[in-house]
Amino acid sequence: MRVLLALGGNAMTNADGRARPEDQIAAAGVAMAAVAELLEADVEVVITHGNGPQVGNLLVKNELAAGVVPPVPLDWCGAQTQATLGFVLMNALEAALTEHGVERRTATLVTRALVDADDAGFTHPTKPIGRFLPADEAAVLVEHGETWEDRGEKGWRRVVASPEPVEILDAPAVQALVEAGFVVVANGGGGIPTVRAADGTLHGVEAVIDKDLGAALLAGTVAADVLVIGTDVPHAVLRYGTPDAEPLGTVTVSQLRAYAAEGHFASGSMGPKVDAACRFVEAGGSRAVITDLGHITHAITGDAGTVVVPD
């Protein structure tokens, strides 16, 4: 069995959301302990991950240094965090494998995801990222070509495009490493957003790809049997936050799509995970599971989390 495990941003921070280096190393140890259990059971695992807190830290550094050095482009931030988090995850996984007496090689691939250069978001960006700043500090970044919007009392906030990924450009390399027996960490943060010019050349762009949609695309590309989306809750929930809240167990794609249409899942949190799970199964995956890190091993067999199956 081949599993694509998508680790949410919470998997690389502590319980309070802090993302100091020591917090990220400790959190990676917890996540990779679960992966080691899967590998010990002869489950083939490909790993992807979120990078929101880590990119957020780089953006703060950009802001603080903007008057001295040019800000690092957003696609570069994605590349840097893919490499850094891959390094941390590989170290954690190799330590966990040693404890389990399992010998497996690991690799991290800095991965590009193709997006449509004509996506409307590039003309009218709407995805807010980073922190709020006063007008004078935002103005410095606007001079560097960034788009910032006045959000009233909170201050100004940067907005970027959030195009859909249409192709994992480096999928052949991922596949080759998997077939060679490596446990691969790839396509972090949804992939580095990349466009193809009219002459066929590729270049990165200032954008943010939804990591869950990137995970669904990668899962299908590497022929994963199961997509597991790791988050900070054990299930997707109907009527979340109300006295009538109801955790979802096994559900068909059409049922889950109907619940989403009724507005049960927030667009900034559970909504993209639900959409990604449905896309993977609709594209031929056997099932997708949304659950927390503590239930990942049981999620593989369909005994935990919200399990999405074909109609």
Results as ranks from 00 to 15, higher is better:
Ala6Ile: 10
Leu7Glu: 09
Asn14Ile: 12
Asp16Ser: 10
Asp16Gln: 13
Gly17His: 13
Pro21Val: 04
Pro21His: 09
Glu22Thr: 13
Asp23Gly: 04
Ala27Gly: 09
Ala27Phe: 09
Gly29Ile: 06
Gly29Lys: 05
Val30Tyr: 11
Met32His: 07
Ala34Phe: 00
Val35Ser: 07
Leu38Phe: 00
Glu40Arg: 10
Asp42Lys: 09
Val43Cys: 02
Val43Pro: 10
Glu44Thr: 14
Val46Lys: 10
His49Asn: 06
Asn51Ile: 03
Gly56Tyr: 02
Gly56Gln: 05
Glu63Arg: 08
Ala65Ile: 01
Val69Pro: 12
Pro70Ile: 13
Pro71Thr: 15
Val72Met: 15
Pro73His: 12
Asp75Pro: 15
Trp76Asn: 15
Gly78Gln: 15
Gly78Tyr: 14
Gln82Cys: 03
Thr84Ser: 12
Phe87Pro: 08
Phe87Gln: 15
Met90Ile: 09
Met90Glu: 15
Asn91Glu: 15
Asn91Asp: 15
Ala95His: 11
Ala95Val: 09
Leu97Gly: 06
Glu99Leu: 10
Ala107Thr: 11
Thr108Met: 02
Leu109Asp: 10
Val110Pro: 05
Leu114Ala: 01
Leu114His: 03
Asp116Gln: 06
Ala117Gly: 11
Ala120Asp: 13
Ala120His: 12
Gly121Leu: 05
Gly121Met: 03
His124Arg: 12
Gly130Lys: 08
Phe132Glu: 13
Leu133Thr: 06
Ala139Glu: 15
Val142Gln: 14
Glu143Asn: 11
Gly145Glu: 11
Asp150Val: 05
Asp150Ala: 00
Arg151Trp: 14
Gly152Leu: 05
Trp156Gln: 05
Arg157Met: 03
Arg157Pro: 03
Val159Ser: 02
Ser162His: 08
Asp170Tyr: 03
Pro172Lys: 07
Ala173Asp: 03
Val174Ser: 01
Gln175Met: 04
Val178Gln: 07
Gly181Arg: 03
Gly181Asn: 05
Val183Thr: 11
Gly190Val: 02
Gly191Pro: 06
Ile192Ala: 01
Arg196Gln: 14
Arg196Val: 05
Thr201Val: 12
Leu202Ala: 10
His203Asp: 14
Gly204Ser: 12
Glu206Pro: 10
Glu206Arg: 11
Ala207Lys: 14
Val208Asn: 12
Ile209Gln: 09
Ile209Trp: 08
Asp210Phe: 05
Leu213His: 12
Gly214Val: 10
Ala215Ser: 15
Leu218Lys: 07
Val222Leu: 01
Val222Glu: 04
Ala223His: 13
Val233Asn: 10
Leu238Tyr: 05
Arg239Gln: 11
Arg239Gly: 00
Tyr240Gly: 00
Gly241Glu: 04
Pro247Asp: 11
Pro247Leu: 00
Thr250Val: 06
Thr252Cys: 00
Gln255Ser: 04
Leu256Met: 07
Arg257Val: 08
Tyr259Pro: 02
Ala260Val: 02
Ala261Asp: 07
His264Tyr: 01
Gly268Asn: 08
Ser269Thr: 06
Met270Phe: 06
Val274Tyr: 08
Val281Pro: 11
Glu282Trp: 09
Gly284Trp: 12
Gly284Ser: 07
Gly285Arg: 14
Ala288Val: 13
Leu293His: 07
Ile296Ser: 05
Ile296Phe: 11
Thr297Pro: 10
His298Pro: 01
His298Glu: 15
Asp303Met: 00
Thr306Ser: 07
Pro310Met: 08
